[in-house]
């Protein structure tokens, strides 16, 4: 029983690390621009799909394919900001949500056109020989996901707390007018925020694709889970979103293992609804008044 639970926890952390990266992308964009970017999941899908296309289709080594694909997805993020979000500056939250949902439908359609409806796999980065921890097993790829996510989360944390540009983005999010007045190029900071979110999304997709496989519509569920995780942790709080992602992954995995895998997604969303009902600002969110 204990070994089984350990197994569920290990799986949960891996899945949770992916959710955490997607949630972090949601939180960064929401923080910088008050936009809930529902194409965050599409960044994840595009990262994985284009890496597979470039490596399997065009014969690039996996690492090079991944690097090219991340660069491409970053460009998609920048274009989303520049051509869809920036022109709608001042529009209501609902309008920008519709814009990002529209963008996600567009990107999914594009993926369908390019790669069809097939499900694709990606080779594991360093083999598929499982490591044993007691009776539980762990694929090297799980370690890649956990390690990669940790490095990215720490990097983002460092960026926002110790670099001038990171603090400038925070400044934009707490008072855009004042950010203009101290000479911050606010438009540029928005681009950086979207680029960073696209980077996190695409890398999450690439890291996890060898385990979960991927397809043109893989971003839908991942986007929703990442969104739930961000809400769980408190939308305006990047590290809360990370915690929310890990928590959601763990809960799902334990629920699937101990209750029934059929209820896995439902349980995640029920918890989301409960949190929204009892703690609208999220488990780790500050009361929204403090963001003024």
């Amino acid at each position: 029983m204990f070994d089984q639970i350990l197994q569920f926890i290990l799986t949960g952390i891996t899945v949770g690390a992916t959710y955490a990266l997607v949630a972090l992308g949601f939180a960064i964009i929401y923080n910088a621009s008050d936009v809930v970017n529902f194409s965050q999941g599409e960044f994840v899908m595009l990262g994985a799909m284009s890496t597979i296309a470039l490596s399997a289709g065009n014969g690039l080594p996996l690492w090079l394919a991944a690097a090219c694909s991340v660069a491409m997805v970053i460009c998609v993020g920048l274009m989303l900001q520049r051509f869809a979000i920036a022109p709608a500056r001042g529009a209501s939250v609902v309008t920008t949500i519709i814009i990002t949902i529209g963008a996600s439908i567009f990107l999914r359609g594009l993926a369908l056109l390019l790669w069809g409806k097939d499900i694709f796999g990606m080779p594991h980065f360093s083999g598929e020989v499982p490591l044993r921890i007691g009776e539980a097993t762990l694929l090297p790829q799980n370690l890649w996901v956990m390690g990669g996510a940790s490095v990215l989360v720490l990097g983002v944390h460092y960026f926002f707390n110790h670099t001038t540009h990171g603090k400038a983005i925070l400044a934009c999010s707490c008072n855009r007018t004042a950010a203009h007045l101290v000479g911050i190029n606010v438009g540029m900071m928005m681009l950086i925020a979207y680029g960073l979110s696209a980077l996190l999304g695409s890398l999450a997709g690439i890291l996890v694709a060898p385990i979960t496989f991927t397809s043109y519509d893989a971003g839908v569920m991942l986007g929703l889970k990442g969104f739930s995780a961000a809400i769980l942790g408190g939308m305006g709080n990047p590290m809360g979103a990370v915690a929310g992602g890990l928590l959601l992954g763990l809960i799902e995995s334990l629920a699937a293992g101990l209750i029934s895998s059929g209820y896995k997604d439902a349980i995640g969303f029920v918890i989301l609804l409960l949190v929204l009902f009892f703690r609208p600002s999220g488990l780790f969110g500050k009361a929204s008044a403090e963001r003024v």
């Binding site: 001038t164 400038a168 707490c174 403090e290 003024v292």
Partner: peptide, 27 residues
């Protein structure tokens, strides 16, 4: 350089970070 109406400091950031952001063009 502009001191806006109602001060509009970056409330969640530290005093020193606020000042350093004021010197953003000196970064």
């Amino acid at each position: 350089c502009h001191v806006p109406e109602g001060r509009q400091v970056f409330a969640p950031l530290s005093v020193e970070d606020n000042l350093r952001l004021g010197g953003y063009s000196l970064r």
